[in-house]
Design a protein around this nucleic acid. Structure first.
Lengths: 202, 202
DNA sequence: TTGTTTTATTGAACAGTGTTCAATACATTT
DNA sequence: AAATGTATTGAACACTGTTCAATAAAACAA
């Protein structure tokens, strides 16, 4: 049955077309300014058709949410070549912060918007867990190498993510103006260096 | 001239009435669900009148934004009785996290929403700077007491706020489910304890 | 007490949002 | 060629923030 097969493929293509439009508008104009009608206009369809292919706006942003995480994971996995686990941990934090700087919109979706997760406990949430696991494993490797003795790895992982995320969150929500600094990049990097120098003593 | 005086007072009262309605709706239904019409309905006025007393929605939320910060500062200043600066610093972090847990909506407005600051560089932004100064002074005191030697106080302050804020931000935006834990409170407190144990080594 | 001017409030309207759904066009099957 | 199923449209609904002419109320002037 080549026809139903092609039908399925066409449906998949339409889903992808919508997603591509959504991504474009989203990365161009940010989360706030991305409406269903904007997306529809971008791909030259009516707004209604989106609801034939997606449940609601949330499902679309869940897909982009997933995209963001796989992009982040890809950039983190480049650091697998760094052998010493603690060096890899430190570099991961830097890469994480760089990711936030270069992909502010994705970062917002991944960590600073509530909507995308509200509905489903499934796939879109799974990849976030994968990223946490990546960090947790890194922490465990560090502990096996003698670092962070007598510390709970779960809480330590949560704390390290929090510290790094905090830097990015203040940046993404424009809460850095209360600090004296030249550029956000400079503030974030020195702030992170400060955290690293604490980690080195632990 | 008792009349223009009373007029001014009445105008001020109306401003306060709107603000009270806004706060009520806002604390009841959260930021997302607070519309101008909701606020107007709450105080039994038409929506249009709000624009006679406030420039726009942003100005209202700027007021609540300020309220949030003065509430936070009030709770932090209770700790002034703690004499040892480092103990005060540690307790401030705990108080900060507790504030976020108990005032999720205020916290969102203060640190996780972009709107309120977009327009003005003035008062609503000034009180945030005051809170940062409070933390910065605390850090400086710690340094005078021999802590955190050879570290830049500005970056250190930014880092400490980031770490604490990160914990609260993950909580407020429901990003804690990727971690194994019983309650959010427990995760946050242990995560913070983890950070403190790092600080103690610095 | 009149008339006039200021000030405060309303309610309709505008352009936008996410979402639903009857009507329609198209493709496939009978 | 007719019937069936699937994809798309465009209008509609109930919202949103915001503006503004009309109106009501109060203060001032004659």
């Amino acid at each position: 049955m080549g026809i139903t097969e092609r039908k399925q493929r066409e449906k998949q293509e339409m889903r992808q077309r919508i997603l591509n439009g959504a991504r474009k508008v989203f990365l161009q104009n940010g989360y706030e300014q991305t409406s269903m009608r904007n997306i529809a206009t971008e791909i030259s369809y009516s707004a209604g058709v989106i609801y034939f292919h997606f449940k609601d706006k949330g499902e679309i942003f869940q897909e982009l949410h997933k995209e963001g995480f796989s992009l982040l994971l890809k950039q983190l996995r480049v650091l697998d070549s760094v052998i010493a686990p603690f060096e890899r941990l430190k570099a991961s934090g830097r890469a994480f912060i760089q990711f936030a700087q270069e992909n502010k919109d994705y970062y917002n979706l991944m960590f600073l918007v509530e909507e995308p997760l509200k509905n489903s406990e499934e796939s879109g949430f799974q990849i976030a867990k994968e990223a946490i696991k990546y960090l947790h494993d890194l922490v465990l490797e560090c502990q096996q190498a003698g670092r962070f003795k007598d510390m709970d790895s779960e809480y330590l992982t949560f704390m390290i993510l929090s510290a790094t995320h905090g830097i990015c969150a203040l940046f993404c929500k424009d809460r850095t103006m209360s600090f004296e600094h030249k550029t956000n990049k400079e503030l974030m990097e020195n702030g992170y260096a400060c955290f690293v120098s604490l980690l080195e003593k632990g």
